[in-house]
């Protein structure tokens, strides 16, 4: 039996939305080098819709595939909807992950939340400066 599902391997070998968005208005980085997985999410949000998303990941196959799948799941979605993304949804979309690899999909969820928080912080600051 292979370690990972075909879907995981597909997203690992050909990750979707890899890279950076230079003019991103929401950026989130989670994880740490001690545990060995780090994810960085870049969001371009226009009219409360995630018009573009890119990621960079230092990590295992499961971490890379989870980041890739997570970006696919939120691309084109309203911010509200993206906030509801769970790691279970990411894992399910990947046809499952080994138990001891679930923590890698948690990072994908956290990276998106961190990027959305960053966006909201920035936009509330600009709201204030508008006044």
């Amino acid at each position: 039996m292979a370690l990972y599902s075909e879907k995981v391997m597909d997203h690992f070998r050909n990750p979707r939305n890899v890279g950076v968005i230079e003019d991103a208005n929401g950026v989130g980085e989670v994880g740490n080098l001690k545990c060995g997985d780090i994810m960085k999410m870049y969001l371009k949000i226009e009219d409360d819709i995630i018009s573009d998303v890119k990621f960079e990941t230092f990590g295992c196959g499961s971490a890379i595939a989870s980041s890739s799948m997570a970006t696919e799941l939120i691309k084109g979605q309203p911010v509200e909807k993206a906030r509801e993304l769970t790691n279970q949804a990411v894992a399910e979309a990947l046809d499952g992950l080994p138990d001891y690899k679930m923590h890698c999909s948690v990072l994908a969820e956290e990276a998106i939340i961190a990027a959305l928080d960053d966006y909201e912080k920035k936009s509330s600051v600009s709201d204030l400066s508008d006044k």
Partner: peptide, 26 residues
């Protein structure tokens, strides 16, 4: 870089190796 992803891509190239990364050991 991280070791497990290195091993998986080497496996795709037909090379069987190992790593001391955390994510390979669980």
């Amino acid at each position: 870089i991280e070791g497990e992803s290195l091993l998986l891509l080497l496996d795709d190239k037909g090379i069987a190796a190992s790593s001391g990364s955390a994510c390979t050991s669980g």
